[in-house]
């Protein structure tokens, strides 16, 4: 990555539920190929931030640019077209419960590609194998554990080889080994496919291991207080809230 090209730009954004302002004056850039961490304490609006980025919730104020295109200023069709290039892993997996895992992963492929059923079957097999779930094709979401649902959700998010992948709390509820494997998978996908990763998390181990860029949402100030590489932030920050967050409040 020699030069950095902005992939998603957030300008002057305000998030609100009705007249309750959650966060204001958010401005940051997610570059192509970044592993971008959205971090902050519970209830700071990390997940809400993500719902705005993926087009589920309208921001109260401000703009989100995908490349040069104003995402929320565009019409529904443009938004659909942009978001089709993104994959989303939801907090609980959000697999469609009436379909098997194979059907879950196949649906985006059936909808947006001209692959034959045989080819789709192969892609499904590969994606499930990538998240360590080979052989689970014919299971229904209710028949597997929460951690597995999460991983299958990642497999579905990756189905179309998206340009950008969003993860909502990917390692919450996973055992340490699976969480580590997930981090490796994220790194590997970035390396091999150049996918931009946007990760909502407060898992410190992951933040330092894979994050190349980040934004910290400070719940007490209702705005962002820092952006940059998390390791660098830890070394340089003088903000007590951020330092406390990055060190689990332990005194150094």
């Amino acid at each position: 990555m020699t030069e950095k090209e902005a992939h998603i730009t957030v300008q002057d954004l305000t998030m609100a539920y009705g007249d309750f302002v959650l966060m204001r004056d958010l401005t940051f850039t997610i570059n192509r190929g970044d592993i971008f961490i959205i971090m902050g304490g519970s209830g700071c609006g990390k997940s809400t931030m993500m719902t705005i980025l993926i087009g589920l919730k309208t921001p109260a104020k401000g703009r989100v640019l995908y490349g040069e295109v104003d995402f929320w200023g565009a019409d529904q069709q443009t938004r659909d077209r942009i978001i089709r290039r993104a994959g989303v892993m939801y907090q609980s997996g959000a697999l469609w419960s009436s379909m098997t895992l194979a059907e879950n992963i196949a649906l985006p492929l059936e909808t947006y590609t001209d692959l034959s059923p045989g080819q789709i079957r192969e892609v499904v097999k590969l994606k499930l194998a990538l998240v360590g779930m080979a052989g689970f094709e014919e299971f229904y979401p209710s028949e597997i554990s929460g951690g597995m649902q999460k991983r299958a959700g990642i497999a579905r998010a990756m189905a179309l080889d998206p340009e950008v992948l969003f993860f909502d709390e990917p390692s919450a509820g996973l055992d340490p080994v699976s969480a580590r494997r997930l981090d490796d998978l994220i790194l590997e996908l970035r390396e091999s496919l150049g996918t931009t990763m946007v990760i909502v998390t407060h898992e410190l181990a992951s933040i330092f291991a894979i994050g190349s860029n980040s934004v910290f949402l400070d719940v007490s100030k209702r705005t962002m207080t820092a952006t940059g590489n998390p390791n660098q932030l830890l070394a340089e920050t003088r903000d007590p809230n951020l330092r406390q967050f990055l060190t689990r409040g332990e005194k150094s």
Binding site: G55, L95, T111, R156
Partner: peptide
């Protein structure tokens, strides 16, 4: 409603379905 709670409907929307 349960699909809404599980974010399954969100997952459809973000796929453009």
């Amino acid at each position: 409603g349960t699909m809404q709670v599980n974010q399954e409907i969100d997952a459809l929307k973000t796929l453009g379905i």
